[in-house]
Design a protein around this nucleic acid. Structure first.
Length: 561
RNA sequence: CGGGGCGUGGCGCAGCCUGGUAGCGCACCUGCUUUGGGAGCAGGGGGUCGCUGGUUCAAAUCCAGUCGCCCCGACCA
């Protein structure tokens, strides 16, 4: 299999100075990855072994649901991207060839695959199809970060489904969910499938697969029976005790008090009794006033979806012109569109009076102002999920995503077919991505301890690390070398540390690299007729009789996978 | 794009403020000793101090510009 002395596994005693994330530090220290430039990473042999094992699991599960693997170019004519309207995306790398033709480096492959399917698929009989590839993607990221977590070039498994209609898409989508669930389970990850924002991909539905880890750049709202990206998560907060209602709003003086904290303090009401009015301006110039409880924040994504607009926070000038003095605005008497969070209810609420240094008490939605009602507040730790269980927020890294694309790409690129009635119809598409490198990083984060990495057996670079403590050609070294050959010949993936190095270095490196099972051949053990074995994950150790080494280790390896 | 930080042998760092022959630890090479948690002794190799320009008798050090990298935020199919 692999002799450490002959392999390129450059372990490091210290972390690189610019590393912050655990996975970044440990993957570099374990000699698995190296940086070539910002967001540009090389997988060294040990790291690539892990990556390839993840790929193999992906291939098996995609093939199992009828996926067909293929390979498309990364370098593509810009023309295709003009047709789908994606050529303007800032993250898209653009370049010219020597003839001046416009090219792009693909960030995903919807354009390419749809162009092929458009020219090859004619009839309803040709559908459905599920096609996938493992291919490099290129993205001009504004900020690559955290080692291999967010890079400018990375391998992605991208799959695309092509169906005759929505029902077919639903079936393809469900099949992919099944495959994805199995893939992440088999990789040994802790993961969640969460509802997500459909984003710029458009389409009718989207789920993300998230792996919780400290270095994650997303946040997930999780409870016993609920999981959603915080971007779209909806929870129910603790109710607020409101002051007495009134027959009509009462204007009170609140000189210079513009924050929720100041107003609630001055009036002696809980922050949740205030109505926080947050103005947004749409791409059309329309101003929308979002209302949430004083102790809540507006979730701009939920608000944007509710409003059906692309929104940005309004400027002070827009607020003054269209609503009232900033700091004192409210929904009563305003002429702009008002969208109220469903948690803003009851009598006795407090809001800005749209007059300087004035607030209104005893306000009641519906009676005192008209509005649309949606869930637009940002979820908070401790909220209740729909099933009543408490929500917690966890950082997580996105490891996969699936979209119901619909016909956006097929219409743009003329991917149509003739149905059974002879009508031309656009193919209904789905898109399904997985980032193997992110799985590697998430596993590194999830399994790490003070000593280093710890890989699940299914994706470990080697199943066993065999450490020979002796030096030169003493007896222990010969025994270790014999055991290595036997294990290798019996099909065990074994990393044999045969280096001329001190025991401390070899043992620490074994913990750093994180193979599931470590076997030590040393003088003490050999004198007792034993091999010393230990599990990386639990630290449990035990001995194996020397003469049963190959057989027992073979059994343990079979059991672990 | 806004803010902050860093570029000095392979890695981690000091030196810069106050200009004057480039240093430390680890790693590496040779020899001897050593071998159960990152060994010891002796000898040795390796750096145009990111780059360009300026100031100066003299620049790692001062000035200007530029490139690269990291972190926070914005952004992120």
């Amino acid at each position: 299999m692999t002799r450490f002395s002959e392999a390129l596994i450059p372990t490091l005693r210290e972390s690189p100075a610019d590393a912050e994330a655990t996975s970044h530090k440990l993957l570099v220290r374990a000699g698995m990855v190296r940086q070539l430039g910002a967001g540009l990473w090389t997988f060294l042999p040990a790291g690539w072994r892990v990556h390839r094992k993840v790929e193999a699991i992906i291939r098996e599960e995609m093939d199992a649901i009828g996926g067909q693997e293929m390979l498309m170019p990364v370098l593509q004519p810009a023309d295709l991207w003009t047709k789908t309207g994606r050529v303007g995306i800032e993250e898209l790398f653009k370049l010219e060839d020597r003839k001046g033709s416009d090219l792009v480096l693909a960030m995903t492959h919807e354009e390419a695959i749809t162009a092929h399917v458009a020219s090859e698929v004619r009839s309803w009989r040709d559908l459905p199809k599920l096609l996938y590839q493992l291919q490099v993607k290129e993205r001009d990221e504004p900020r690559p970060r955290a080692g291999i977590l967010r890079t400018r070039e990375f391998v992605m498994k991208d799959a695309y489904s092509f169906d005759r209609d929505e029902e077919g898409l639903d079936r393809s989508y469900e099949a992919c969910i099944g495959a994805y669930d199995r893939i992440f389970d088999r990789c040994g990850l802790s993961w969640y499938r969460v509802a997500s924002d459909v984003g710029m991909m458009g389409g009718q539905g989207a789920d993300e697969y998230m792996a919780p880890c400290a270095a994650g750049e997303d946040e997930v709202a999780i409870s016993a029976g609920y999981a959603a990206n915080v971007d779209v998560a909806i929870g129910t907060p603790e109710p607020v005790e409101l002051p007495e209602g009134r027959d009509a709003p009462l204007e009170v003086e609140t000189p210079g008090l513009t924050t929720v904290e100041e107003v609630s303090g001055a009036l002696g009401v809980p922050e949740g009794a205030l109505i926080k009015a947050v103005p947004f301006t749409g791409d059309t110039g329309e101003v929308v006033m979002a209302l949430v409880r004083g102790d809540d924040e507006v979730n701009p994504i939920l608000l944007g979806n509710a409003a059906g607009l692309d929104l940005r926070p309004s400027t002070e000038g827009e607020i003054s012109d269209r609503i009232g003095p900033p700091g004192f605005i409210g929904p009563v008497g305003t002429e702009v569109r008002v969208i109220k969070d469903s948690q803003v209810t009851g009598r006795g609420l407090v809001c800005g009076a749209n007059a300087a240094d004035r607030h209104l008490q005893g306000v009641e939605p519906g009676r005192d102002f008209a509005c649309e009602e949606h869930d637009i507040r940002r979820v908070r730790e401790g909220d209740s999920a729909p099933d009543g269980s408490p929500i917690r927020l966890e950082p997580a890294i996105e490891i996969g995503n699936i979209f119901k694309l619909g016909t956006r790409y097929s219409e743009a690129l003329g991917a149509t077919f003739l149905d059974e009635d002879g009508r031309v119809r656009p193919i209904v598409m789905g898109s399904y991505g997985i980032g193997p490198a992110r799985i590697v990083a998430a596993l590194a984060e999830q399994g790490a301890d003070e000593a280093g990495l710890s890989w699940p057996a299914s994706v470990a670079p080697w199943q066993v690390e065999l450490v020979a403590l002796g030096k030169g050609d003493d007896e222990t070294t010969r025994i270790a070398a014999d055991l290595y050959r036997e294990l290798r010949d019996s099909g065990v993936e074994v990393l044999f540390d045969d280096r001329e190095a001190g025991a401390g270095q070899k043992l620490t490196d074994a913990e750093l690299i994180g193979c599931p099972l470590r076997i030590v051949v040393g003088r003490k053990g050999v004198e007792a007729g034993e091999l010393e074995a230990s599990w990386r994950a639990s630290g449990d150790d035990f001995t194996i009789p020397l003469d049963q080494g190959t057989v027992r280790i073979g059994q343990l390896v079979a059991e672990m996978s």
